[in-house]
Amino acid sequence: MKLPDKSTTLEEAVAAIPQGATVLVGGFGVPGTPFTLLHELARQGQRDLVLVKNDANEAGMGIDHLIASGQVRKLIVTHLGLNANAIAAMNEGKIEVEFCAQGILAERIRAGGAGLGAILTDIGIDTELANGKQVVEMDGRPMLVEPALRADVALVHAATADPFGNLAYAATARNFNPLMAMAATQVIAEAETLLPLGGLAADVVETPGAFVDQVVELTELSQEYGIVRR
């Protein structure tokens, strides 16, 4: 038996993203952001997108290109303090922004990837993040119902992959990537290195390829992946 080959081209992979899609985007700052997939999404021009990401990158980087080109309808993020363009777009009403506590965003995505409906948590229950949310009592304590987040598409960045879609990550470039790689109908991974089947030892695989639909090998790393000198 042999595991199926899901390697594809950048153009083909991103063409699978429909207009109006909800898209999970990996990354926390630069590490783990799938810059090449995002660039191709900007080039192909799908519009009316809902992006789910920890942050909004920085001005001129990553999802900022999609905000600038008017392709984004809504952002679900934990903060966007490093991107003045995103804050301006929010303040001018050009994009809708939903803020989520960082670990709760991670758990909502994990729940989506695990086929669950929601999680219960007291995080943010004393804050305005609780506004409009359903409250239930669990063991005598009030808990917010935080719905699972499952998306049409996930765009993730891996250090290493094989053609089946087994993925391994580098250092703090993990962040939301392993969670998002489980939580979408169409999971597209870009990888810095694509090894042949068997090249990625079973012990080091963090995302099993069974969750992944398409794998794109990066032929070069653009400047956006590099060190940011602030």
Partner: peptide
């Protein structure tokens, strides 16, 4: 109002 990131969970837990 850039969002709280992880501050709420750190402060609460």
């Amino acid at each position: 109002s850039p969002g709280a990131g992880g501050a709420i969970e750190l402060a609460q837990k």
